[in-house]
Design a protein around this nucleic acid. Structure first.
Lengths: 220, 220
DNA sequence: TTAGTGATTTAGGTATATCTAAATAAATAT
DNA sequence: ATATTTATTTAGATATACCTAAATCACTAA
């Protein structure tokens, strides 16, 4: 049976997520940026992951994740997201505070721990950022969703995720009163600059730039 | 500020616990047995811990933990025991299944995580094995407790801890119906071999050898 | 009081995960 | 078509945490 170290798990998760985002091969530099390590370290790691056959690695031509690799990556993502739900729902963490801690918790090795945690949390299907939690078999059920700026005037929906989940952006959202789960209605779209006015939970109106709107995903 | 690696934390915890048990210097061999590593590896680690001044290390003469070292050890023990409470009370782990998982969880670095976990669990003072949980400042309030074989006939009490917390022993206790929290009464003590008959929760009588009785601690 | 035994340390090796600096391959621009 | 730039890899270094084998220290028993 293949075993991965913590570092290998982290690299593989990053490769999987970069693949999903771009739907093609992932470059050494991309991974280096994502992992905040030097490209030289990435080359080293790619060689190791290639030997373990969780990625397909052709020198100088980037990597593709294998089916086996996807399983490992999805298992790590499942753990990460379940811990994020735990931190937010049970320990009252703010949704922009969970990433660092969840990144440590996700490496705890215990299948039964994750099963029990899942059960304890009521088998959640989405994490606090609205991202889907893969099930035990790696199946992911994603929701159809649109960025706010693509919703028609008077269209309604529920905020389910954000594209940019940087701490700064999440704090901004909290500040203006937008949060995962909020029900929104698009009131007005300004032709000139694409900025948008929305109604949150039928009581508060928020005005946001097109850039912000494009980063907030809504289930319609 | 001093920082310890996971391995250093584990060694320091072991050294602290061996010190408390024996109230004197701890030998390389003792640590090697406790940590299941070779004496040569222990020597290596003692040099490092000595340099970080969490232990006082004189070659060939064993080690003593420093005040600074105690703080670190107690912090690790606090985390370990809080996670054990979580695993047993919230995730329905059996009390003999928690050690391995808690040993991984205890190394997650986040002060706020432990504060929140403590609060979420209702500030427990004892772990599932009845061992006291140090508070944020490293203070430990232990309960007065006696092994069953030192209780007089007709004496009563509540099981609060076990000395030998090996998985095999814990399973044995579960099997005969003894558990942490059980109220007991000593019914009879056989002179010949020191074996003892006790009444558990006013409904079930258990017969146990002197050796078993000596391993079960009762708050009187 | 010294030889032997057991405990402990040192020396040197493996594996992981990072780095910097140098070398080299691929992509781009003139 | 070649020179330049950028991306990537290799080589060699550091730090952690283990190991085995050999050397050395401390204690004890005759």
């Amino acid at each position: 049976m293949i075993k991965l170290t913590h570092a290998e798990e982290n690299y593989l998760k990053a490769i999987y997520q970069l693949s999903e985002a771009g739907k093609k091969g992932v470059s050494t530099n991309d991974i280096s940026a994502e992992m905040k390590t030097k490209p030289a370290s990435v080359s080293d790691m790619l060689r190791k992951l290639g030997e373990k056959e969780v990625i397909e690695y052709r020198k100088y031509y980037g990597v593709h994740i294998t089916e086996e690799g996807k399983k490992f990556a999805l298992r790590t993502i499942r753990k990460q997201r379940l811990w994020e739900v735990f931190l937010v729902e049970k320990l009252r963490f703010a949704w922009d505070e969970v990433a660092e801690v969840a990144d440590e918790l996700e490496h705890v090795q215990s299948t039964i721990l994750i099963q029990r945690l899942d059960e304890y949390l009521g088998f959640p299907k989405f994490d606090p950022h609205g991202d889907p939690i893969p099930d035990e078999y790696g199946d992911v059920r994603s929701r159809p969703r649109l960025p706010i700026n693509e919703i028609d005037i008077n269209g309604t929906g529920q905020i389910v995720a954000v594209k940019d989940s940087s701490a700064a952006f999440l704090r901004y959202l909290d500040k203006v009163g937008a949060y995962i789960g909020a029900r929104i209605k698009v009131l007005e779209k300004v032709e000139f600059d694409g900025s948008i006015e929305i109604l949150v939970d039928n009581k508060k109106t928020i005005f946001m730039s097109k850039d912000v709107a494009a980063n907030i995903l809504v289930m319609v």
